[in-house]
């Protein structure tokens, strides 16, 4: 049996979700964003909630998330996505409202909006890409940058006497009464991707729960191979070795 005999529609077992359109993504080769975008699209498609899902894209690399998934979107000012999600969810209570944010957006400029949306127990999902660096602006230090890690604004490595410590904001929001589900996942292997997808699905399902139970927060520990100045494969290996120590994978809260 030849390859051509196998490649037939009836034998298809995996393809990108149909609501992920054919626009070429602007992300660098090997960027974790693409995988997470695909998971978000798969979950929305499988749940059949295209007509009642509103995504909020951040300022950062994922600013153009709205170009790739065919749902309604709003583009936030830097850090304000959780405030926006709050308003949309309250005005459209039967909708699935999610934010998609990076570490600079969520844990630096938008810390107040993140903490307060979580603390109010908003029935929203927050997808948080933590790659410990500012990607879009060219690889500057993020609040999540590891101690000693080099970036363009800490070229000799993050010095705690100068810049303080990496901010484990997932642990912070897990402490709040207003969150119901806080988990930390990754997308560097097929097995990890499957788990991350299940987490995103659970978060999205939580937003549609009939009673307001609280915010769902899915942190994806990710790579930024361009910003880290590594190949995609080496970036994955570096992440496993270094990032997972500071940001251990697994559920932080699930009630």
């Amino acid at each position: 049996m030849t390859t051509q005999d196998i490649i037939k529609p009836e034998n298809l077992v995996y393809a990108k979700p149909s609501i992920m359109n054919d626009n070429t993504m602007h992300y660098c080769p090997g960027c974790s964003h693409g995988v997470v975008h695909k998971l978000v699209a798969e979950v929305i498609e499988e749940m059949g909630i295209v007509d009642k899902t509103i995504g909020i894209s951040p300022v950062g690399c994922a600013v153009f998330a709205y170009n790739y998934i065919d749902i309604d979107w709003q583009e936030a000012a830097h850090g304000r996505a959780p405030a926006m999600a709050t308003a949309i969810k309250r005005l459209l209570p039967d909708h699935c409202v999610f934010t998609y944010q990076g570490d600079g957006d969520l844990a630096a400029i938008g810390t107040a909006e993140t903490i307060h949306a979580c603390n109010r127990g908003e029935n929203i999902a927050i997808i948080f890409i933590n790659n410990a660096i500012y990607g879009m602006t060219g690889g500057q230090m993020a609040p999540t940058t590891l101690e000693g890690m080099k970036t363009s604004t800490c070229p000799y490595g993050r010095d705690v006497t100068l810049n303080g410590y990496h901010l484990p904001i997932g642990n912070l929001v897990a402490q709040l009464e207003g969150t119901r589900y806080v988990t930390r996942q990754s997308v560097h292997t097929a097995a990890a991707v499957r788990k991350a997808k299940a987490a995103i699905k659970k978060a999205f399902e939580n937003t549609l729960a009939p009673e307001k139970k609280g915010a769902s927060f899915v942190e994806i520990v990710s790579t930024c191979n361009s910003g880290w100045k590594m190949s995609p494969k080496d970036a994955n290996d570096w992440m496993v070795e270094n990032m997972f120590k500071a940001y251990p994978i697994g559920d932080l809260k699930n009630i």
Partner: peptide, 26 residues
């Protein structure tokens, strides 16, 4: 009508921006 005390004016105007984006009178 939804009424909410936000954490700051920055948050409240961005809530208005989002509500307006839904075509709501906010």
């Amino acid at each position: 009508m939804v009424v909410l005390q936000a954490e700051s004016e920055v948050a409240s105007i961005n809530m208005v921006y989002a509500g307006a984006g839904c075509g709501k009178k906010v």
